[in-house]
Design a protein around this nucleic acid. Structure first.
Lengths: 201, 201
DNA sequence: ATAGAAAACGGACCGCGGTCCGTTTCCACC
DNA sequence: GGTGGAAACGGACCGCGGTCCGTTTTCTAT
């Protein structure tokens, strides 16, 4: 088999003890399984601990909180999505004009968010705050805006594009106001157009 | 003293029994007091029940959940703010050009949101979903956009303006990214300008 | 190999949000 | 004023997230 362990190259915090690493693996696996089967909000930490065959304390030492554990599970899904953006086929991946990439990003991101809605909700603050997933998304939008020649406060403008795709807002639009999905999609593209300033094809 | 009870005019669901109304009053009062003193997240439902001199079950029958109770407390503060918008002095209140009103709205709303941040967080979904407060805010923005002659999907555009003022986004910008408040304010005005389309003074 | 210390383990324990149900209070109608 | 029944009450109870600390495992230095 291949050597999948990250080589213990120097630097960074001291490495993890073997039992700790093994338990982290088991816990993540168990959590993924349970989340897929029952939905994130129905999964209890005791159940994860039991399914992984470890004590409850271990779960919290490894992941800090339920939000932390769910964020870890989410991060795994997000990583696959990220690779689509970084090295997948256009227009989501590189190779298409930046405006087309931005539109493709919006659509894909919206669908992904709605797909993992319960997981994102369960991940709570840990989902965005300092999570690698969020940083990547924000960076990508800033990058596309820059490529489009947008001037202004790019971090803030990127936030303006991402905020309407947060779960609470989508919940409101889709489940309370009853807007059909195409309308939300179209609305986002319109917003992007106004922010970028009459671009494109 | 004045007659503050809403007159039992016909229509709507059957009125509330006297003890029920009295307890709702006591509970809201106690909750306000405790929230102001200790912060919403530190207030327990048992504490509210005890402070109001009622049983715990009563709290939940009246307000459904902690989020519900906090939303009720929040609604009280929001009502005062609403009256400023509807009948206060310009530019927040009526009488100023719509663009000035929109800018004033943004600033005021942002400050209010940050001021009640913990309460809003504790109110959770109940804060926005179908709360009177949220509906009013959304309606007001739609109204101003219409007055400015903005064309397009106004409900969606209003959401785009309100989403960056939600607590999770502000938390990210202010407490994680460390943006100074003026930058967030300015960013919002810039966003509004782009959405409206080169307006104004 | 072995010893000693540091790190991880596990499950009893705690506090809080939320529910349940036997008891009490109110109110409409006689 | 009395009375029947619906509505409200209250606090014991439950499940879950999170903590604590005595025990066990792993690593390192000899």
């Amino acid at each position: 088999m291949s050597q999948t362990e990250p080589l213990p190259l120097l630097g960074g915090p001291p490495p993890e003890r073997r039992d700790a690493a093994r338990n982290r693996e088991r816990l993540l696996e168990a959590a993924r399984e349970l989340v897929e089967r029952y939905g994130a909000s129905a999964v209890t930490m005791d159940a994860v601990a039991a399914a992984a065959g470890v004590g409850k304390g271990t779960v919290f030492r490894r992941f800090g909180s339920k939000e932390g554990l769910m964020a870890a599970v989410l991060n795994h899904s997000e990583t696959q999505w990220q690779s689509q953006v970084m090295s997948g086929p256009p227009p989501l991946g590189p190779g298409a004009p930046p405006w087309d990439r931005l539109v493709a990003f919006g659509h894909s991101r919206l669908e992904t968010t709605l797909l993992h809605a319960d997981l994102i909700r369960a991940a709570g603050h840990s989902a965005s705050r300092s999570s690698a997933a969020y940083s990547f998304v924000a960076m990508h939008v800033r990058f596309l805006l820059a490529e489009l020649g947008v001037t202004g406060d790019l971090p803030i403008l990127a936030t303006a594009l991402l905020a309407p795709m947060e779960i609470p807002i989508l919940d409101q639009q889709v489940h309370v106001d009853g807007f059909p999905l195409e309308r939300v999609h179209a609305g986002w593209v319109d917003l992007a157009r106004r922010i970028v300033g009459t671009p494109g094809p």
